[in-house]
């Protein structure tokens, strides 16, 4: 009986956590507040069903996510709402080849800001 319950729990947990994508960030570009520049920012982006983790050498962000009317993933950090867009597109950026582009945008900072992460799937 205990084994049955254990196996059912495993099955349930595997279904609820079925969606998870992990990206390695290879290069980052930032535009906002008068800046239009590359950042020496490397780390990992993990996107799950209802959360995301952005782990880099400077900080670790663990955020709850929702989807807006247009289907974009959104998350809030402090007073800022960010929209995340995942683009499945191969290319080269500053001689670094990438498979995906992840873009985060917010209007909740003066002038708005856009961060572009050039990634490979982990």
């Amino acid at each position: 009986m205990k084994l049955k319950f254990f196996l059912l729990s495993i099955l349930f947990l595997s279904f609820t956590n079925c969606f998870s994508q992990e990206f390695t960030v290879l290069a980052t570009h930032y535009k906002g507040q008068g800046l239009d520049t590359d950042y020496p920012f490397k780390g990992t982006f993990i996107i799950k069903d209802s959360s995301l983790i952005l782990d880099c050498d400077q900080f670790h962000l663990d955020a709850q996510t929702t989807k807006d009317k247009s289907g974009f993933i959104t998350y809030q950090y402090e007073n800022r709402e960010y929209k995340l867009q995942i683009i499945d597109k191969k290319g080269n950026y500053n001689k670094i080849s990438y498979d995906f582009i992840l873009i985060t945008k917010t209007d909740d900072i003066v002038g708005g800001e856009v961060s572009t992460y050039y990634c490979k799937i982990k």
Partner: peptide, 14 residues
């Protein structure tokens, strides 16, 4: 309303 809650946790490593 965004100025009333925060559902993310940021850990600063630097």
């Amino acid at each position: 309303d965004r100025y009333k809650y925060n559902n993310s946790v940021m850990t600063f490593k630097s």
